[in-house]
Design a protein around this nucleic acid. Structure first.
Lengths: 153, 153
DNA sequence: TATTGTTATACTCTATAACTATA
DNA sequence: TATAGTTATAGAGTATAACAATA
């Protein structure tokens, strides 16, 4: 029984370390946000825009997993700050294409660069063999967990 | 140069996987919150209370890294939902001791159990040698990063 | 009829500043 | 004078529901 308890404790420590690292990464993102005068939600929207290109608000709502109403508010803020514009959709007059401005594209590029810098600072010193194990365990764990969440639903 | 780019890309993929796993863990926490009728911030406060025992709002503000005013609001909500009470501080009549109720203690216990369950679901199937490498890389990375953040400040 | 986005309304988290009670 | 907590005020993120324009 004592062995079982120790076992649980060890696994919990591993989870705690994952959460700690995730907290540190979020703190780094918060610094980026302060520097750019953006919020987490707006940066997330810009990030999606950087991946997907100009998108309808409907598509953004799905990608961000928030309501369309919420996207209206986020886009309003990003229009005010000059990061995006609402362009007419060429084929559907109901929809708008949220499109990064020059300033928005610069912010997205900075975000990508900052993300890469962080990856380098975090992992560049880790011996490659250990990093490979680390990456594999991450991938397997995430996949297993996604499967479990799916089954539970 | 191509090699350098590949190198960057690999490290970025590792970071992406950390972020993905962290997203999944947060989704699991969100499920817990919905079940208990709590929010992330209030769960965080309860968690701290579970670790530290009855605390002044001042101490909670420091632990949560938010303003005292914010703690007032969070505690108001948790008093309304019946998870905590404000007890007089025995030695300082300015201060209150935020104290979990029976319901609050049950929620904290559920939270701890849910955390342990998650750790088990995530990591129990990982071979112990690989898990050890994983945990070590996590710890070293977090420590190195914390040091870098400290220097940058 | 269904979809896209907005107006209306409400709740939560967060912050700063001014204030009261107590130390 | 300093500290603990609250009132006042404000901005941002989030949600549901009702509605207009368009498909």
């Amino acid at each position: 029984m004592v062995k079982y308890i120790h076992h649980m404790t060890d696994l919990t420590v591993v989870l705690d370390r994952v959460l700690l690292l995730s907290t540190l990464v979020q703190a780094d993102l918060a610094r980026f946000e302060r520097d750019e005068g953006l919020t987490t939600s707006r940066v997330h929207l810009l990030w999606v825009l950087g991946q997907a290109g100009p998108s309808t608000q409907q598509a953004l709502a799905v990608a961000l997993d928030v309501t369309p109403r919420n996207v209206t508010g986020l886009v309003d803020g990003l229009v005010t700050s000059g990061h995006v514009t609402r362009e007419p959709h060429p084929a559907d007059r109901r929809a708008t294409l949220v499109t990064p401005t020059e300033k928005g594209r610069r912010a997205i590029a900075d975000l990508v660069r900052s993300h890469e810098d962080l990856a380098q600072r975090l992992f560049d010193e880790v011996p490659r063999e250990r990093l490979a194990v680390f990456a594999e365990v991450l991938e397997e764990t995430a996949a297993r967990f996604a499967r479990l969440m799916e089954e539970a639903r």
